[in-house]
Write a protein that binds this DNA or RNA. Structure first.
Lengths: 328, 328
DNA sequence: TTGTACGCGTTATCAC
DNA sequence: GTGATAACGCGTACAA
């Protein structure tokens, strides 16, 4: 492995000059530049990045926390982030917290041990108070998570609005008996907000909702199918369902059509996320602007790294899109 | 930021001793160990990983190349790899080649500049001759890609067999008119092999195939739907279709049932991968043992890093599973 | 415009 | 058992 020293020797110059050429410093004669370049080529030289990191005290690497990369929402987020990061010369380290507090805490050490310049959190398992101290070691940006007090940039969606516009859409289509499916209702701020939006739209329209039209702990395709099994037994079933997820919506539609129900005539369904599934099942869905969230987040991250200022709170609120297909 | 020097000073010992404690070297008195630990805690000290990397000449980081992380096959692969890597104290850098030669070549510099200890390739865009020279800088392991000559560990599936068992299944179910969908037929070894397996099963059963039952450049759900549009116009349509992808299979089934065809009575379809889509549409599919591929690959990678021997060829061949559902 | 010399934070080597 | 000291490879203040 050739070092900068070897290049210097071959070029008959000092290490300093070689370093200057590598880093495009001014005050180097064209002639010496050529000499250095030639020597570098000849020796197949590349700067050693570990040494650079130590010297410059930065790594050009960013850690991204996701619960699991197989979740299409997060993989899409990461896809765009990696692209944006690469464009600006940064690498991405993938950290899957697997919804575990301990796992998340382990990864925090990356920032402390200077293995990365910053942290992007797309989901948070621990209390903010656990994470806050690490701000001392480098910037943190939150993405798609919300916290009232954290003094960091936050890029997020107004999930109340998301619930609202989806529900409003159903109401405008003329449905009056609306059902609601949600995931982990109690713990998640996100699920809670969507529910608020749902209720707000209901209130505005003066609609009532039956308790038996509320379904919690629905996450998967299978959950959607099971939910339909319950619905079809109801004496007074809902006409339309707001689901917080395309998976659940897809399961509902599949089970319903298998049973001979017509969608949307017998049962309308609206999903969330606009995943490939939604296209397949022709689901109307509330689309989250994933590409924008991701690129904005990355931009704020790199900005924070470069500015080296104290972290400050900054909220970036992004809008949703309704994608209408044939399920409503 | 506290350094090892600060700890030494506070503990009233030398850097050497502190380093010994950190790295669990023998020959340190219990008493001094305690002293050092106390000082470390007090200063909230963590070893600087850049300095460590420079000194030890290794990074405990592995780069994983995938075309795009949003492809469920690759995200599943990466999910498991990250998990295995973390278990053994390694980080993963995500590199999306986006099916571009240039992009792939850019990432190769990671190995050369010592930013990672090794490379895992789950797809290859460039000729092997482009990549081979980088073996001088660190180990490379291939995963789900095949190459005849590369002197590296290769973990892969016998795609000929994959095509064969899927087709055999259709034949055993009694179908005799078999169609075939493939992606990028000409360039990809993988697609080519599956086709070979398909033909082998056909031959063994003494079956003939019509040219019009062969569909190339099919990748997406939409392609599956379009393929059905062609099939339904044929005067002599196939009874069953082998597709190289659950997406295509799902699109086919969706379009067919929408048109009032019964699956599998009017048209049987078999997918590939066992993605969530396959469960939703109740697709029979050929499952690739993704978790095994991923963990075996990671194991070989870490082994290669640790052994520091010259890279040698080693083939690990893994079997498929048939998952039978109601589409056949 | 170029070179000298020092430091980034660790760990390995060798003395004691 | 413990402690100087010298690398690891690079960048930069300062001097020339």
């Amino acid at each position: 492995m050739a070092t900068i020293q070897d290049v210097a020797k071959l070029a008959g110059l000092s290490r300093t000059t070689v370093s200057r050429v590598i880093n495009n410093h001014p005050y180097v004669t064209e002639e010496k530049k050529r000499l250095v370049s030639k020597a570098m080529q000849e020796l197949n030289y590349v700067p050693n990045s570990s040494a650079r990191r130590l010297r410059r005290q930065q790594t050009e690497t960013i850690a991204v926390y996701v619960p699991r990369i197989t979740n299409p929402f997060f993989s899409h987020l990461v896809e765009v982030m990696e692209k944006e990061a690469a464009k600006k010369g940064y690498q991405l380290i993938l950290c899957q917290t697997r919804y575990k507090k301990q796992q998340e805490r382990n990864f925090l050490e990356l920032l402390k041990t200077k293995q990365v310049d910053g942290l992007i959190l797309t989901s948070i398992e621990n209390d903010w108070s656990e994470i806050e101290p690490y701000l001392a070691y480098g910037p943190i940006v939150m993405c798609n998570e919300y916290n009232d007090t954290a003094q960091v940039p936050i890029v997020f969606l107004d999930q109340i609005k998301g619930g609202y516009i989806g529900t409003k859409h159903l109401i405008e289509k003329g449905y009056t008996k609306l059902g609601f499916c949600t995931g982990n209702h109690k713990s998640s701020r996100l699920a809670h907000d969507r529910h608020m939006g749902f209720l707000k739209a209901l209130n505005e329209a003066g609609l009532q909702m039956k308790d038996e039209w509320f379904f919690s702990s629905t996450h998967s395709i299978q959950d959607g199918k099971s939910t339909f099994e319950i619905i079809k037994e109801l004496s007074d079933p809902p006409e339309a369902i707001f689901t917080g997820s395309d998976e659940v919506a897809a399961g509902l539609v599949k089970a319903a059509t298998d049973e001979g129900w017509k969608v949307p005539e017998d049962l309308a369904v609206i999903g969330f996320d606009n995943q490939p599934l939604a296209e397949l099942m022709e689901l109307t869905t509330v689309e989250q602007p994933i590409e924008t969230i991701a690129s904005q987040t990355m931009e704020l991250m790199i900005e924070s790294i470069k500015s080296k200022r104290k972290s400050v709170r900054k909220e970036v609120l992004l809008p949703f899109n309704m994608i209408q297909r044939s399920s409503t």
